[in-house]
Design a protein around this nucleic acid. Structure first.
Lengths: 326, 326
DNA sequence: CTGAAAGCGCTTACAG
DNA sequence: CTGAAAGCGCTTACAG
């Protein structure tokens, strides 16, 4: 089935068929009816590839995340999908697993014109060949930042949020606060670490213990905590940069026969549902994940519609949620 | 940048350029070099849309899930993505949220030739216009079944698994076993309910309490459990058809001031990491989620390569994991 | 309001 | 081994 067949069936030209398909122009209503009828009876569906090739618009955006199993990622993706759908866009998901090869091959979709733009939650510094691509390309970073390049981003003030969490632990009487961070190729990891360090030094507290998780998973959190517990001087509090990591830390603490928060207080990050699932329930920093996703799409669409538009930097609010774990 | 420009640059025809791009045929090595050189210096990337239009192959598959935030879904999707990548395919994710409209519009990608096939985890009976599409279309159901139509599927024996779980609870001494099920438009929900009922009737146990969750989420599980707890005769055990639902149930039990498993034993389903995150850790039925995803892709690819191939039905193994919750 | 025609960027018989 | 040409299925000035 092609537009040709429909044209023949309806006794009009392909141009006319195309016009009713795009309900553009004014087509004489009798012709419109005949076309519509032909479409109906032949169950015709336009070929999207042809359309996109012709218009050089794909109405698809590529979303690259490092781990879709992280509930925060999933929430952001939901927001992205909602807003994309409202604007007639679809998303292509690439679950990079922080794998450079996979990321690189995904980026081929962009140069191959399969997608109109990209939203990344991955660390920028890990994305290859970026310098040659950015600038020409609608791109937004989501819950993460780009130092260089003309790239929009939407996120929260990570340093502030981190400082707030650490201060809370200190005020609570904790003396030895450890940090379970994501690897430092992520800008947000750098910022949160900065917050952690700055509060400690302000308060003249010289205990410092940092573990880096290679991914935002329960397992990574658990082994990070196990490492912390192996040290001669154990922490009495731990701030993990994701709820998933925090859940892993809590499991490790439990396995070691210690209690949260009595022996070790725990604070997470993200404010996902997971924080309510664990016991004791997790104190955490809530990010407006859905909205972050939605705004990422808005920024991206603006850039797609107007490539000259300058990069924007959107800072969203965050909220500290006090629960039983700290 | 188009193949034309490269041809001009290299001083050959577009056909030759195309040949080296597809490293088909034998191109004289001097010409190959010149083309490769031209490609390099102009940073050329082939337009995928044009290629796909011409070859009528998109190398993309549509994946429809009801809720990507459900860790089981996320794991299956990871498996799908891995296997797809190994075969040069990409995935388009549609997080339907069980929304008919969204599902329907996604299906347009198929008829629009944007994807070569579909993998669904959604309930079949909810997908609209299926009868007109199936048969012509490479399609596989994943962790779910189709009664009708020529559709392949891969999953586990849900009835057996469910019976095993219920029997475990009964053997443990539980007298009043409730079920938190997904809505019955899902075939697997029907099968697991059948397992639940058959064991109870075999054993002459006439307590029956079933709650239906509208989605596989923590919240839905929590409210289902709250409903069960409102009944005059409370259950002393509950079998939830997903770990996420079970986590919600545990939260409700905790909120009601009761203990798992002493007051109410809980068994989940899926064997996701979540089962290790909650306290007490969750007894559950493990599905080989990653492999389910991988095999779904294999089946699909076989169908794409050979449309005449009959539908296949793949049954995977499952495993009961006993932990503290039951 | 409508149609003939060009063209988006590829691939692939076909002929040489 | 290579090129000219047709064609995938659309959209969109352009002329009428």
């Amino acid at each position: 089935m092609s537009i040709q067949k429909i044209a023949k069936l309806a006794g009009v030209s392909v141009a006319t068929v195309s016009r009713v398909l795009n309900n553009s122009d004014s087509v004489k209503s009798k012709n419109r009816e005949r076309v519509l009828e032909a479409i109906r009876e032949s169950n015709y569906q336009p070929n999207l590839l042809a359309r996109q090739l012709r218009t050089s618009r794909s109405s698809m955006i590529l979303v690259m995340v490092s781990n879709i199993a992280n509930p925060f990622c999933a929430d952001v993706v939901k927001g992205i999908e909602e807003e994309a759908e409202m604007n007639g866009y679809r998303i292509l998901l690439c679950n990079s697993g922080s794998d450079i090869e996979r990321s690189k091959s995904s980026l081929g979709l962009l140069s191959g014109k399969m997608v109109d733009g990209i939203i990344t939650m991955d660390a920028f510094s890990r994305l290859p060949d970026l310098s040659t691509m950015i600038g020409q390309t609608p791109w937004v970073q989501c819950a993460e930042y780009a130092d260089a390049g003309d790239v929009s981003c939407v996120g929260i003030n990570d340093t502030d949020a981190s400082e707030f969490a650490i201060r809370h632990l200190l005020e609570r009487g904790c003396k030895r606060v450890a940090l379970i961070n994501h690897d430092l190729s992520y800008k947000y990891a750098q910022l949160r670490e900065r917050g952690y360090k700055s509060v400690l030094s302000q308060q003249g507290n010289d205990f410092e213990a940092i573990e880096y998780a290679s991914e935002l998973s329960f397992h990574a959190g658990r082994s990070a905590m196990e490492n912390l517990l192996r040290a001669p001087l154990k922490p009495d509090a731990v701030f993990a940069v994701s709820d998933t990591l925090a859940a892993g830390a809590m499991r490790a603490i439990d396995d070691a026969g210690m209690k949260v928060p009595q022996d070790i207080a725990v604070i997470g990050f993200d404010g996902t549902e997971l924080a309510e699932m664990v016991s004791p329930q997790l104190t955490t920093i809530e990010q407006p994940s859905r909205d972050i996703g939605r705004h990422a799409v808005s920024l991206l669409l603006r850039k797609i519609d107007n490539p000259e538009a300058p990069a924007e930097r959107l800072m969203m609010g965050w909220r500290f949620i006090a629960r039983a774990s700290a």
